[in-house]
Amino acid sequence: MSTPAVEVVDLQKRYGERTALHGVSFAVERGEVFALLGPNGAGKSTTIEILEGYRRRSGGTASVLGADPGTAGLDWRARLGIVLQSASEPGTARVREQLAHFAAFYPDPRDVDEVLEAVGLTAAARLRVSALSGGQRRRLDVALGVVGRPELLFLDEPTTGFDPEARRRFWQLIRTLRDEGTTILLTTHYLDEAAALGDRAAVIAGGRLLDIGPIDAIGPAEARTPVVRWTDADGRHELRSETPAVVVADLVARTGGEPAGVEIVRPSLEDVYLSMIEAVEADA
Protein backbone atom coordinates (compact mmCIF):
# COMPACT_ATOMS: atom_id res chain seq x y z
CA MET A 1 0.00 0.00 0.00
CA SER A 2 1.48 3.33 -1.00
CA THR A 3 -1.03 5.80 0.43
CA PRO A 4 0.66 8.32 2.72
CA ALA A 5 0.16 7.88 6.46
CA VAL A 6 -1.20 11.43 6.62
CA GLU A 7 -2.42 13.60 3.80
CA VAL A 8 -4.06 17.00 4.17
CA VAL A 9 -5.14 19.24 1.35
CA ASP A 10 -6.17 22.87 1.85
CA LEU A 11 -6.91 22.26 5.54
CA GLN A 12 -8.80 25.16 7.11
CA LYS A 13 -9.97 25.93 10.61
CA ARG A 14 -11.99 28.90 11.81
CA TYR A 15 -12.93 29.68 15.40
CA GLY A 16 -15.80 32.11 14.97
CA GLU A 17 -14.26 35.18 13.35
CA ARG A 18 -10.67 34.07 13.82
CA THR A 19 -9.03 31.89 11.19
CA ALA A 20 -6.43 29.55 12.67
CA LEU A 21 -5.55 27.65 9.47
CA HIS A 22 -5.66 29.19 6.01
CA GLY A 23 -5.46 26.13 3.79
CA VAL A 24 -2.51 23.95 4.77
CA SER A 25 -1.43 21.01 2.58
CA PHE A 26 1.17 18.34 3.25
CA ALA A 27 1.67 14.59 3.29
CA VAL A 28 3.58 12.31 5.64
CA GLU A 29 4.91 9.10 4.10
CA ARG A 30 4.80 5.75 5.87
CA GLY A 31 7.80 5.18 8.12
CA GLU A 32 8.80 8.81 8.07
CA VAL A 33 9.52 11.16 10.98
CA PHE A 34 7.89 14.42 10.01
CA ALA A 35 8.35 17.59 12.05
CA LEU A 36 5.80 20.39 12.12
CA LEU A 37 7.64 23.56 13.09
CA GLY A 38 6.35 26.95 13.99
CA PRO A 39 6.13 29.60 16.69
CA ASN A 40 3.46 29.49 19.40
CA GLY A 41 -0.01 30.12 17.97
CA ALA A 42 1.10 29.17 14.45
CA GLY A 43 -1.54 26.47 14.08
CA LYS A 44 0.60 23.39 14.85
CA SER A 45 -1.61 22.05 17.62
CA THR A 46 -4.80 22.88 15.75
CA THR A 47 -3.48 20.88 12.79
CA ILE A 48 -2.41 17.90 14.85
CA GLU A 49 -5.67 17.87 16.87
CA ILE A 50 -7.70 17.82 13.66
CA LEU A 51 -5.63 14.83 12.51
CA GLU A 52 -6.14 13.11 15.87
CA GLY A 53 -9.91 13.52 15.51
CA TYR A 54 -10.28 15.92 18.46
CA ARG A 55 -11.27 18.95 16.40
CA ARG A 56 -13.42 19.32 13.34
CA ARG A 57 -11.94 21.01 10.31
CA SER A 58 -13.76 23.95 8.71
CA GLY A 59 -12.60 23.10 5.19
CA GLY A 60 -10.27 21.02 3.06
CA THR A 61 -9.67 17.28 3.24
CA ALA A 62 -7.72 15.16 5.69
CA SER A 63 -6.79 11.51 5.52
CA VAL A 64 -5.03 9.69 8.37
CA LEU A 65 -4.11 6.03 7.80
CA GLY A 66 -6.57 6.12 4.93
CA ALA A 67 -9.52 7.35 6.99
CA ASP A 68 -11.20 10.70 7.61
CA PRO A 69 -10.23 11.62 11.19
CA GLY A 70 -13.55 13.42 11.64
CA THR A 71 -15.55 10.20 11.33
CA ALA A 72 -13.13 7.27 11.83
CA GLY A 73 -13.97 4.71 14.51
CA LEU A 74 -12.28 2.61 17.17
CA ASP A 75 -10.46 0.32 14.72
CA TRP A 76 -8.72 3.41 13.44
CA ARG A 77 -7.99 4.69 16.97
CA ALA A 78 -6.34 1.37 17.81
CA ARG A 79 -3.70 2.09 15.13
CA LEU A 80 -2.82 5.55 16.47
CA GLY A 81 -0.68 6.68 19.36
CA ILE A 82 -1.30 10.14 20.75
CA VAL A 83 0.94 12.11 23.07
CA LEU A 84 -0.94 15.27 23.95
CA GLN A 85 0.69 18.57 24.68
CA SER A 86 -0.18 18.57 28.35
CA ALA A 87 -2.15 16.49 30.76
CA SER A 88 -2.78 17.12 34.44
CA GLU A 89 -4.63 14.06 35.60
CA PRO A 90 -4.80 13.71 39.38
CA GLY A 91 -2.48 10.71 39.22
CA THR A 92 -3.88 8.40 41.89
CA ALA A 93 -2.93 5.41 39.73
CA ARG A 94 0.47 3.78 39.94
CA VAL A 95 2.78 4.03 36.93
CA ARG A 96 2.70 0.39 35.87
CA GLU A 97 -1.00 0.08 36.71
CA GLN A 98 -1.83 3.05 34.47
CA LEU A 99 0.22 1.71 31.57
CA ALA A 100 -1.19 -1.81 31.89
CA HIS A 101 -4.71 -0.36 32.05
CA PHE A 102 -4.27 1.48 28.75
CA ALA A 103 -2.51 -1.49 27.16
CA ALA A 104 -5.73 -3.48 27.77
CA PHE A 105 -7.64 -1.19 25.37
CA TYR A 106 -5.51 -2.26 22.38
CA PRO A 107 -5.73 -5.45 20.33
CA ASP A 108 -1.96 -5.98 20.05
CA PRO A 109 -0.21 -4.01 22.80
CA ARG A 110 3.51 -3.92 23.53
CA ASP A 111 4.85 -5.60 26.63
CA VAL A 112 4.22 -3.18 29.50
CA ASP A 113 7.55 -3.82 31.23
CA GLU A 114 9.51 -3.39 28.00
CA VAL A 115 7.83 -0.03 27.42
CA LEU A 116 8.60 1.06 31.00
CA GLU A 117 12.22 0.07 30.43
CA ALA A 118 12.38 1.96 27.12
CA VAL A 119 11.15 5.22 28.67
CA GLY A 120 13.31 4.75 31.77
CA LEU A 121 10.51 4.34 34.30
CA THR A 122 11.23 0.81 35.49
CA ALA A 123 12.42 2.04 38.88
CA ALA A 124 9.29 4.22 39.20
CA ALA A 125 6.84 1.46 38.21
CA ARG A 126 5.20 1.26 41.63
CA LEU A 127 5.02 5.00 42.30
CA ARG A 128 1.80 6.97 42.12
CA VAL A 129 1.67 9.06 38.94
CA SER A 130 1.25 12.13 41.17
CA ALA A 131 4.66 11.42 42.73
CA LEU A 132 6.52 11.66 39.38
CA SER A 133 8.62 14.64 38.36
CA GLY A 134 7.53 16.68 35.34
CA GLY A 135 9.99 14.93 33.06
CA GLN A 136 9.00 11.47 34.34
CA ARG A 137 5.33 12.30 33.77
CA ARG A 138 6.12 13.30 30.21
CA ARG A 139 7.90 9.98 29.69
CA LEU A 140 4.83 8.21 31.00
CA ASP A 141 2.75 10.21 28.48
CA VAL A 142 5.02 8.87 25.76
CA ALA A 143 4.76 5.33 27.17
CA LEU A 144 0.95 5.60 27.10
CA GLY A 145 1.20 6.81 23.50
CA VAL A 146 3.28 3.88 22.28
CA VAL A 147 1.96 0.98 24.39
CA GLY A 148 -0.73 0.21 21.81
CA ARG A 149 1.96 -0.46 19.16
CA PRO A 150 0.75 2.40 16.93
CA GLU A 151 1.42 2.58 13.20
CA LEU A 152 1.30 6.35 13.47
CA LEU A 153 2.44 8.29 16.51
CA PHE A 154 1.50 11.92 17.15
CA LEU A 155 3.87 13.78 19.43
CA ASP A 156 2.75 17.30 20.36
CA GLU A 157 5.75 19.16 21.80
CA PRO A 158 6.98 16.02 23.54
CA THR A 159 10.14 17.33 25.21
CA THR A 160 9.00 20.70 26.56
CA GLY A 161 10.50 20.98 30.04
CA PHE A 162 13.10 18.21 29.56
CA ASP A 163 16.68 18.70 30.61
CA PRO A 164 19.25 18.12 27.83
CA GLU A 165 20.11 14.61 28.97
CA ALA A 166 16.44 13.56 29.15
CA ARG A 167 15.90 15.05 25.71
CA ARG A 168 18.73 13.00 24.22
CA ARG A 169 17.39 9.81 25.78
CA PHE A 170 13.98 10.66 24.41
CA TRP A 171 15.41 11.15 20.94
CA GLN A 172 16.98 7.73 21.15
CA LEU A 173 13.58 6.26 21.98
CA ILE A 174 12.01 7.99 18.97
CA ARG A 175 14.75 6.63 16.69
CA THR A 176 14.06 3.13 18.00
CA LEU A 177 10.36 3.53 17.20
CA ARG A 178 11.20 4.81 13.74
CA ASP A 179 13.52 1.87 13.13
CA GLU A 180 10.60 -0.41 13.98
CA GLY A 181 8.61 1.24 11.21
CA THR A 182 6.44 3.66 13.20
CA THR A 183 5.43 6.78 11.32
CA ILE A 184 5.88 9.81 13.54
CA LEU A 185 4.33 13.27 13.26
CA LEU A 186 6.01 15.60 15.68
CA THR A 187 5.35 19.23 16.56
CA THR A 188 8.11 21.12 18.24
CA HIS A 189 9.54 24.56 18.58
CA TYR A 190 12.99 23.15 19.32
CA LEU A 191 14.75 23.28 15.99
CA ASP A 192 17.61 21.06 17.10
CA GLU A 193 14.97 18.44 17.88
CA ALA A 194 13.52 18.66 14.38
CA ALA A 195 17.03 18.51 12.93
CA ALA A 196 18.00 15.52 15.10
CA LEU A 197 14.87 13.46 14.48
CA GLY A 198 13.07 14.64 11.41
CA ASP A 199 13.39 13.23 7.93
CA ARG A 200 11.35 16.13 6.62
CA ALA A 201 9.78 19.20 8.12
CA ALA A 202 7.07 21.72 7.40
CA VAL A 203 7.16 25.25 8.77
CA ILE A 204 3.84 26.82 9.75
CA ALA A 205 3.31 30.41 10.82
CA GLY A 206 0.15 32.45 11.02
CA GLY A 207 -1.91 29.44 9.95
CA ARG A 208 -0.06 29.09 6.63
CA LEU A 209 2.50 26.59 5.40
CA LEU A 210 5.71 28.50 4.69
CA ASP A 211 7.84 25.65 3.47
CA ILE A 212 8.09 21.89 3.41
CA GLY A 213 10.95 19.57 2.55
CA PRO A 214 13.94 17.63 3.83
CA ILE A 215 15.34 19.29 6.96
CA ASP A 216 18.49 20.46 5.18
CA ALA A 217 16.45 21.97 2.33
CA ILE A 218 14.08 24.04 4.43
CA GLY A 219 13.92 27.74 3.66
CA PRO A 220 14.83 29.72 0.55
CA ALA A 221 18.19 28.76 -1.03
CA GLU A 222 19.45 32.25 -0.28
CA ALA A 223 18.78 31.83 3.45
CA ARG A 224 20.78 28.58 3.52
CA THR A 225 23.81 30.00 1.69
CA PRO A 226 26.91 30.33 3.89
CA VAL A 227 27.82 33.86 4.97
CA VAL A 228 31.32 35.35 5.06
CA ARG A 229 31.77 38.37 7.36
CA TRP A 230 34.82 40.56 7.88
CA THR A 231 35.71 44.08 8.89
CA ASP A 232 37.88 46.65 7.10
CA ALA A 233 38.29 50.44 7.13
CA ASP A 234 34.76 50.87 5.66
CA GLY A 235 33.17 48.82 8.45
CA ARG A 236 31.59 45.36 8.67
CA HIS A 237 30.94 43.41 5.45
CA GLU A 238 28.75 40.42 4.76
CA LEU A 239 28.72 38.27 1.63
CA ARG A 240 26.69 35.15 0.90
CA SER A 241 28.47 32.53 -1.17
CA GLU A 242 28.35 28.83 -1.95
CA THR A 243 32.16 28.93 -2.03
CA PRO A 244 33.06 30.85 1.11
CA ALA A 245 36.67 29.65 1.19
CA VAL A 246 37.23 31.15 -2.26
CA VAL A 247 35.78 34.43 -1.02
CA VAL A 248 38.19 34.44 1.90
CA ALA A 249 41.14 33.54 -0.34
CA ASP A 250 40.24 36.43 -2.70
CA LEU A 251 39.98 38.70 0.29
CA VAL A 252 43.43 37.74 1.53
CA ALA A 253 44.93 38.16 -1.97
CA ARG A 254 43.31 41.61 -2.34
CA THR A 255 44.20 43.03 1.07
CA GLY A 256 47.48 41.16 1.41
CA GLY A 257 46.87 39.97 4.97
CA GLU A 258 44.49 38.53 7.53
CA PRO A 259 41.16 40.40 7.35
CA ALA A 260 39.88 41.61 10.70
CA GLY A 261 37.14 39.58 12.41
CA VAL A 262 36.71 37.10 9.58
CA GLU A 263 34.10 34.37 9.97
CA ILE A 264 32.27 31.85 7.85
CA VAL A 265 28.81 30.92 9.05
CA ARG A 266 26.73 28.07 7.66
CA PRO A 267 23.15 28.96 8.62
CA SER A 268 21.66 26.41 10.97
CA LEU A 269 18.06 25.30 10.69
CA GLU A 270 17.40 27.80 13.45
CA ASP A 271 18.84 30.73 11.46
CA VAL A 272 16.88 29.72 8.38
CA TYR A 273 13.71 29.27 10.38
CA LEU A 274 14.06 32.57 12.21
CA SER A 275 14.63 34.46 8.98
CA MET A 276 11.45 32.87 7.54
CA ILE A 277 9.39 33.75 10.61
CA GLU A 278 10.76 37.30 10.61
CA ALA A 279 9.78 37.68 6.97
CA VAL A 280 6.22 36.59 7.78
CA GLU A 281 5.98 38.93 10.73
CA ALA A 282 7.33 41.80 8.63
CA ASP A 283 4.55 41.15 6.08
CA ALA A 284 1.84 41.01 8.71
Binding site: E52, G53, Y54, L74, D75, R77, A78, L80, I82, L84, S86, A87, S88, E89, P90, F102, F105, Y106, P107, L144, G148
Partner: peptide, 16 residues
Protein backbone atom coordinates in the same frame (compact mmCIF):
# COMPACT_ATOMS: atom_id res chain seq x y z
CA UNK B 1 -12.92 17.21 36.50
CA UNK B 2 -11.88 14.39 34.17
CA UNK B 3 -13.01 16.54 31.28
CA UNK B 4 -10.90 19.49 32.37
CA UNK B 5 -7.77 17.66 33.56
CA UNK B 6 -7.29 15.74 30.31
CA UNK B 7 -8.38 12.27 31.50
CA UNK B 8 -11.28 12.19 29.04
CA UNK B 9 -9.17 13.55 26.22
CA UNK B 10 -6.65 10.76 26.69
CA UNK B 11 -9.37 8.10 26.91
CA UNK B 12 -11.07 9.59 23.85
CA UNK B 13 -7.82 9.21 21.93
CA UNK B 14 -7.67 5.50 22.76
CA UNK B 15 -9.83 2.71 21.33
CA UNK B 16 -11.88 2.50 24.57
Amino acid sequence: QERSDGTLKRLGGSPL
